[in-house]
Design a protein around this nucleic acid. Structure first.
Lengths: 154, 154
DNA sequence: GTCTTTCGTTCGACTAACTAAACATAGATC
DNA sequence: GATCTATGTTTAGTTAGTCGAACGAAAGAC
């Protein structure tokens, strides 16, 4: 078997193992999986507009409006009108939103951390290096995906 | 910053980069994300009962029944009564289901493969080793999660 | 041979996610 | 200033996923 295949299989196993908990992860944060992704995106970008989020998630703007409505009602995000362009509505995390994010990763953290700490020093170092490498490889592949049509534009 | 933190951050980046495409991955297979997971589970276990799938996905049996109904109508899976225990309904992938699976991973594959092939030999070897290691760590953490209550049992 | 448990299913119902289309408002262009 | 374009929203509707409860049939216990 080719090395690349072994790699991909391992990657898929990693994905599956964690994806399994995507739902639980979100629930532990008091959110739905999709809502958690919105919150994660906001955490990265600091403040964003609805349209930007829509593009990143590959959904129609109307979908984001509905989603932000819910997150606003639950107190996780806040809308504030933009002063530079008054058509835009800026969306930002509230403290509650940031707290939810902190609670979310615990499941993954706890599962991985215990085993990781038990490893030899050199092995830990190697894992860190490789995971970073792979992350960069995948992130890079993601970069050219910024401008994408809405599903409805197809 | 602790090494474990670097690790977790990298892991989350990997997850996010690929998770982003969970939907597209499924769509390229002509399935919804949840349906794809059912198909994946069936591909692993060969043949399974509804209850087993329900437990693995942490959902109620009724949910699986509905899902299998859809997958059966679309021709991806087939039901066959069990001869050993006639209460059970065995569920198996059809050829169409297996084909769908083959189409699904292409997106991830193509993105990762190109960059991977360009790496030095020793680096490839290291990545393979580490990814396998991490996969085992996460799979193992998953193993003791076999017997879980239905959501409704809580 | 009854009693209990297990298995999948049906039914009715709810929620989340998502969309297209129409709309109001605000920049941009000329 | 009139026209085009971009932005977010409302509305009305769809689809997928999910569940609890009730159910029938089969297996297991005793």
């Amino acid at each position: 078997m080719e090395r690349i295949d072994v790699c991909l299989i391992a990657l898929r196993r990693i994905l599956r193992a964690t994806e399994l908990h995507g739902k639980e992860l979100a629930q532990s944060a008091g959110l739905t999986p999709v809502q958690l992704r919105v919150v994660q995106i906001l955490a990265e970008s600091g403040t964003s507009t609805g349209g930007a989020i829509a593009k990143r998630m590959h959904v129609a703007p109307a979908t984001i409006t509905a989603m932000i409505d819910k997150l606003q009602r639950s107190g996780h995000v806040a809308r504030q009108p933009s002063h530079i362009d008054r058509r835009q509505t800026l969306i930002a995390l509230t403290d509650k939103g940031r707290e939810a994010l902190k609670r979310a990763p615990d499941a993954l953290q706890q599962r991985f951390a215990a085993e990781f700490e038990a490893l030899d020093d050199w092995e830990q170092a190697m894992i860190v290096a490789v995971l970073e490498r792979v992350a960069v490889m995948l992130d890079a592949g993601d970069a050219d995906r910024g401008a994408v049509l809405y599903p409805g534009d197809l």
